[in-house]
């Protein structure tokens, strides 16, 4: 489909296609696993699930206590990361920017590890510690990278600041990891690679709320981001209150990154590649790219997570390993194509 500018019909059709693909993929993800459950049984189980006082059998337990929350988590994490990536790329005029490159994911990881180590001294429930500390770490890293790289018309400076902050936080994370015992080390390492196996209700609620808020804020700035994407100074002369837009987008994208990392660890490449793929197919207007990236990121992460828990079943791979395995070659291809 080609188009010269964005119209409502094109947006609706594109988003509808993505949503349909997402629903289909969710059913596939419900069906496959060490115990495979036919789609007809899933449909019947879903109907029964809604009737009150229904006793769950083993298959239904797998579906509703194991697979469904995990799918929901994959969708939430993927959507948040891709949305944050799309927002950062447009704001920084840099198609290669994403929460990882800017060091914001590492900030979230830093907060979480610090939280886990000092868990006994913190006033939160252990399950909340990771969420709160990740978000705090992400916000801190955002504020730092923003302060260091803040310069009107120089996106390179910001990315450079992010890379340096990222390396620095990485070393701090390694230093802290040498302080923890072996069991916790394995858990943290798995989580750092991106691990969606632990879908707690708190995580789901947290990421759901963050996603909703982030999406709403970013959609109000979509039009302004179209101008920021061309140049901050030009956006300013064309009527954008650039300082306000920059602040709002940074805050929303940090919230999304923090929530995603807290819930699913550092799953790479989703934030970088999803917006790229969307733009390749549907053009660069952020009024479409933002919501489409959210749906696309959810879809990609769900595919990766389904592969992660099925390819060497009953053992599992970290989801982040699959996204990196698929994402890195694709990224190199895009990089070479840009020449």
């Amino acid at each position: 489909m080609t188009r010269t500018y964005l119209n409502q019909k094109y947006v609706v059709v594109t988003l509808a296609w993505l949503a349909v693909a997402l629903v289909l993929m969710s059913f596939i993800a419900l069906a496959v696993g060490p115990v495979s459950i036919p789609l007809t049984s899933i449909w019947a189980a879903l109907q029964q699930w809604l009737t009150p006082d229904h006793q769950l059998d083993v298959r239904e337990l797998i579906l509703f206590s194991n697979r469904l929350p995990r799918i929901a988590l994959a969708l939430g994490v993927g959507a948040s990361l891709a949305l944050a990536g799309a927002a950062f790329q447009a704001l920084l005029r840099n198609p290669l920017a994403d929460p990882h490159i800017l060091g914001i994911s590492r900030g979230a990881a830093f907060g979480a590890i610090l939280g886990i180590i000092t868990a006994a001294q913190l006033p939160f429930a252990p399950s909340l510690t990771r969420a709160v500390c990740s978000f705090a770490g992400a916000s801190l890293a955002s504020a730092l990278v923003y302060a260091l790289g803040r310069r009107e018309d120089d996106p390179a400076r910001l990315v450079l600041a992010g890379v340096i902050l990222s390396t620095f936080l990485s070393s701090l994370n390694v230093l802290m990891l040498s302080l923890v015992d072996d069991v916790r080390l394995r858990n943290i390492t798995l989580w750092l690679l991106g691990d969606l196996s632990n879908a707690l209700t708190e995580s789901l609620l947290f990421i759901g709320a963050a996603l909703l808020l982030g999406l709403l804020v970013l959609l109000t700035q979509a039009r302004a981001l179209n101008l920021m994407m061309i140049g901050a100074r030009e956006a300013f002369t064309l009527g954008v209150e650039t300082a306000r837009t920059r602040w709002l987008v940074f805050a929303a994208a940090s919230l999304l990154t923090g929530a995603a990392v807290a819930a699913g660890g550092a799953i790479g490449y989703v934030g970088l590649l999803t917006p790229h793929l969307i733009r390749l197919i549907a053009g660069a207007d952020n009024r479409l790219v933002l919501p489409a990236a959210a749906l696309g990121g959810a879809l990609l992460t769900l595919v990766a997570d389904t592969l992660a828990r099925t390819v060497i079943a009953p053992r599992e791979l970290p989801t982040g390993a699959i996204t990196a395995l698929l994402g890195a070659p694709l990224f190199i291809y895009l990089l070479l194509r840009r020449r």
């Binding site: 010269t4 840099n94 061309i230 064309l238 733009r279 053009g283």
Partner: peptide
Amino acid sequence: VHFPLTALEYVLTGRFAHARAF
């Protein structure tokens, strides 16, 4: 411009000040 904008989309950004923000 590092993103795949058409010339018409580029010109349409000029309408920002007249249009609703959303």
